[in-house]
């Protein structure tokens, strides 16, 4: 009789946790709530006489899945930039573009990562390699082109930020459709 009352209580708690899980906007909180909800679900399985399922639920749902979620979230906090420019624009810490990008990344709570390797195939690179920005330079005049995804929210913010600078221009590229 007591276990029935406890099981009903856990069911109500599980509904509340699930509604909080759906309504919450913060990703880290969502990962923790997922772990908690799967713990209570395992307890419910145990009360309904299915200890096999409870063991699998505890191991997979409350340890491995939150780890994968948290790693994916920490990957989201990077702002990956590829530069084809060899001068001091972004490569040195005091360059003009570097300052702008660092400022932008700090204000959005992101971690700036700059790579200066050449990549032959530019098409489809945003989607496959998770690159946010590519920096190019026109040969005749001193204009630097920053190319990014058109659908990204961050590129619009960056465009607002560099509106007043004359030697930086932003190009928004359409995403290339991939076949997979």
């Amino acid at each position: 009789m007591e276990t029935v009352v406890l099981a009903n209580f856990i069911q109500v708690l599980l509904i509340i946790i699930t509604i909080a899980l759906v309504a919450n906007k913060n990703n880290t909180v969502v990962a923790i709530l997922f772990s908690v909800s799967s713990l209570f679900l395992a307890l419910l399985y145990f009360f309904n006489k299915a200890p096999d399922v409870a063991l699998a639920e505890i191991a997979v749902g409350s340890a491995i899945m939150p780890l994968i979620l948290i790693i994916s979230i920490s990957k989201q906090r990077e702002y990956v930039v590829i530069t084809h420019v060899k001068d001091d624009f972004v490569n040195s810490l005091t360059g003009e573009g570097r300052k702008v990008l660092q400022d932008f990344a700090d204000s959005n709570n992101l971690e700036l990562k700059i790579y200066d390797r050449d990549i032959d195939n530019i098409k489809g690179i945003f989607r496959e390699r998770n690159v946010d920005l590519i920096i190019d330079r026109s040969d005749d005049n001193k204009i630097y082109y920053l190319r990014g995804k058109k659908s990204s929210l961050l590129i619009s913010k960056l465009e607002n930020k560099v509106k007043n600078l004359e030697n930086i221009k932003i190009i928004k590229e359409e995403e290339v459709e991939t076949n997979d």
């Binding site: 096999d52 699998a56 340890a63």
Partner: peptide, 17 residues
């Protein structure tokens, strides 16, 4: 006892984690 291959394997993977 309750358990078996999949459950024990998942617990071992958690231990290595």
């Amino acid at each position: 006892t309750p358990g078996g291959g999949f459950q024990g394997g998942a617990i071992l993977a958690t231990a290595i984690l």
